[in-house]
Design a protein around this nucleic acid. Structure first.
Lengths: 234, 234
DNA sequence: AATTCTAACCAATTGTAAATTGGTTTTGCA
DNA sequence: TGCAAAACCAATTTACAATTGGTTAGAATT
């Protein structure tokens, strides 16, 4: 009959109105529920589908059908994301996000931000250990994010950074002992800070993009070189 | 003999100095390693223990023994970020992030992604309740993030979305009962999906940007109107 | 002829039991 | 007494079967 789906919808709504449904918001599997309501599985599924579009329940393969809104805490775990990712993917995300942050920083950066960036540049030039260089690099990138003046963007950067660290952790065994000598990054970092200082939005975007491109290139070079350590300040 | 532990420590350090140890930093299980080094398990364990106290490796039952420092997962609290933010700031972050995601989606979107986006468009056109409309909107935006094919970008979008929901949580009084009638968003959503379908990167970026601009405008209009409900699908 | 129902199959997830692994205790031996 | 070997324990991973939402093909019904 034609109205079988509507009938199923009615039956389903009536069943959901029951006061004694399980407290975890999970309703029986479709194969049980359809016999319980005396409708075919197809009709039940169409009824469930409309209720899902209304946001009154949500379904997931292998898990079940649940009342209410989907739980959000799914992919917020940094380690979970990191496990399903790889250095190249993180790098490409950085290539999209960080130049945008640099461009935004040109609009909102304060004098304190600029001073801190210059300080990072100086520390990098004078760095004598890899650790010093790396710390200054991290600090510079985060200062750019701070300079956007947007706490949400800063939180996103921190999330990206945490994912990056977790992805790299375990892969990078032995870091070099000394900072890079003939390194492009020196000049690129200074170009970046200059562009932000001069409120050159496009220039800052480009400088950050170029810098991350060289990082990506050395990353690719390293991974193609085999199991060797990943270089640069990735 | 007395110096068996010291012998084990020496052997172990020599083994760790090997250049071809596995890249994940994991050592062979104790039962293998002790035969490998020709020492008893007890002596090996004492040697491992001293190295662990020195922070040169860490161990966990059932997992293994690893070189380096334990990974630390510091979880970034969404509610903390949300408390120090506001709807306008979230909106500006969206304006910077989501058009970029849309542009990237044009490169990597699969047929399944496009089908899902069209489905969201259709549901929005046919929506009869606000909740239906809002669900489809959320779904569409998330599908765009999925279509980037980058799990890190997807995680960042989820983070941004979670912040948005938390920020809006306490401020949104009463939602309208019916979906928007003369709404710009209809056309904008369809423009967006069309641009992604046609692999028009710049067009997708622009469409998402325009869409979010109208959302922001209505948000500003609402907040200037006083304590009234924030409209649209913010 | 069209629709709907049934059954089978698929893919994601969960549940479970066995195997693995670091930590501890017991036993054997010199 | 001291140490090595074995046995045992608990946390974790792995392998595999069972469950569950999603899909498709063919039979059944109208």
């Amino acid at each position: 009959m034609k109205g079988s789906v509507e009938s199923a919808l009615t039956q389903l709504k009536a069943w959901l109105a029951q006061p004694d449904l399980p407290s975890d918001g999970r309703l029986p599997p479709e194969r049980e529920l359809c016999t319980l309501l005396g409708v075919s599985r197809g009709a039940l599924r169409k009824a469930l589908s409309t209720l899902e579009q209304d946001g009154e329940l949500w379904r997931q393969v292998g898990k079940g059908t649940f009342i209410g809104a989907r739980s959000v805490e799914k992919s917020l775990s940094i380690s979970t994301v990191a496990e399903g990712s790889n250095p190249l993917e993180v790098m490409q995300a950085r290539l999209l996000v960080e130049p945008m942050l640099a461009g935004e920083a040109t609009v909102h950066a304060t004098g304190a931000h600029l001073a801190e960036m210059h300080r990072c540049n100086r520390i990098q030039r004078e760095a004598r250990t890899w650790r010093q260089y790396e710390n200054a690099d991290n600090r510079l990138h985060r200062t750019v994010a701070e300079a956007t003046g947007n706490t949400v963007l800063l939180a996103l950067f921190d999330q990206l950074n945490a994912i990056r660290r977790t992805v790299v952790w375990g892969r990078l065994r032995d870091k070099p002992d000394y900072p890079p000598a003939d390194h492009k990054s020196f000049g690129q970092h200074e170009l970046l800070v200059r562009a932000i200082s001069e409120r050159d939005q496009e220039g800052a975007y480009q400088a950050m993009h170029d810098h991350l491109m060289t990082v990506q290139e050395s990353l690719l070079r390293a991974s193609s070189r085999g199991s060797g350590s990943e270089p640069d300040n990735f």
